[in-house]
Design a protein around this nucleic acid. Structure first.
Lengths: 246, 246
DNA sequence: CTCGAAGTTTGATCTCGATCAAATTTTCAC
DNA sequence: GTGAAAATTTGATCGAGATCAAACTTCGAG
């Protein structure tokens, strides 16, 4: 039986574990109930994609919404001059592809082999219209996604390269911790170029930032995609830094 | 009679004129119907504030959502080191203050004298729960806000100061045009410092960017708060630029 | 396993914008 | 209207990071 956790996430990472928008609600419902999931799962088909494959691209007719079963997705926009801006990295249980006006507002591509639920929009809409409870949850997820996107903007406003990268690593760490992945290591499914496009800096600068953090003993990397925080306090300090001068 | 257009906008500018999330809907409904507005207006009280007054601040219990009748609002976060990051400028008909977990996730302050509708959250929630139609509209507005916040992130990723400022002016222009304000002039209700905090650059750099655009004959300013685009094509070119080198 | 392509690191140079500082203009309270 | 405070402009210095270039490493197809 398909189990589709709903998390409407077009661009911001991590929609899991959203708290409903209400102080008065008794127990927080972190996810949809099993029953709610079941009601949605019947609408979905399952899609598999290879690493590097495009899921949809900007401007295309948005006829489906997706939910990640396994794998990592990159959401991005391409500028007229060909440069890419990564708007979000999306992980297990994230939902993406919700759009206004029936057009996707960004492109999405598989960073790893991928398994997805695919929800045709019309069916999903009909279901939501009939189900106020479900719809309310969607609102909560959207609010959460909004916060994530704001965090991204906040991150971009950081000035120093080290601070940007440290903050990005914090973000990944929280994401992985939040999903109860037990390793103390942070896993980077994306390459330096993607990170640079997400952080608004060159890939060389990303590389140098990693080296900077390493030589100062703040992080230890096992290989290019696995690292851990060695000096938490200076790490947090750097991530929180907003200055530009030494 | 109070007329509250719904536009749920916690941080991103401009929620007016949102297209419902559906390709199949016949006529796009740009706003709530009069009847829908009336249903909401009965829940609201009206608040007036002076320029510079704080509407709410980060972490406070979020017991109300606001909708701007007249005036301009700045939404911002304050870092531990005291620096401010402006997350959005909000205008007439924008709604803000929606939050998860019952806490405001940013502060909001009046940039001009302000008149607001104030909706107590519990009443609004009850109303939304009973009104799937209304709730669906809220989703659409949230989607739109998401796009705006993404645009902000995109803007922050720009490298050159001129490009950031030009893009910001485009944004304001679209906003004002979208609301059918007839002047060919762009109005800047915020000061250089606010702009800098929104664009992730120093206020001096903002000032120099304005001068740069002026001396090159790309914009003409009547005074510090009113300007128009004199050379549209180079203006657009600069706004779209993503490079950093000459 | 081998080879070529893609991704990453490292180096050198140079520019833009942050910062510090100070002059000037605008705003607002009285 | 006047003066103090706030906002803006302008100037000068300096460093972080973009860009160009090239070496090195990893990955994957065959």
């Amino acid at each position: 039986m398909a189990r589709a956790k709903i998390s409407t996430n077009t661009h911001g990472p991590a929609i899991r574990g959203v708290d409903p928008w209400t102080p008065s609600a008794g127990k927080m419902r972190q996810f949809l109930s099993e029953e709610e999931r079941a009601r949605l799962a019947v609408l979905a088909s399952i899609v598999r994609l290879n690493k590097g494959e495009e899921i949809y691209s900007e401007g295309q007719r948005a006829d489906a919404v997706f939910n990640i079963i396994t794998g990592v997705v990159k959401a991005y926009k391409t500028a007229p001059d060909g440069s890419e801006h990564v708007t979000a990295f999306l992980f297990k249980d994230d939902m993406f592809g919700l759009s206004e006006e029936g057009k996707y507002t960004n492109s999405a591509k598989a960073l790893t082999p991928l398994a997805l639920y695919r929800f045709p929009v019309p069916a999903l809409r009909r279901r939501l219209a009939k189900d106020a409870d479900l719809e309310f949850h969607v609102i909560c997820k959207l609010l959460h996604e909004l916060r994530e996107t704001q965090r991204h903007a906040f991150l971009l406003a950081r000035r120093r390269a080290l601070s940007k990268v440290a903050m990005f690593l914090q973000l990944l760490e929280n994401l992985q911790a939040g999903r109860g992945e037990r390793t103390a290591e942070i896993y980077l499914p994306m390459n330096r170029s993607d990170i640079g496009e997400y952080l608004g800096m060159s890939l060389e600068a990303v590389s140098r930032a990693f080296r900077g953090l390493t030589t100062r003993g703040i992080i230890k990397s096992r290989d290019r995609r696995h690292l851990k925080i060695a000096d938490r306090s200076t790490f947090d300090e750097i991530a929180a830094d907003t200055t530009n001068a030494p």
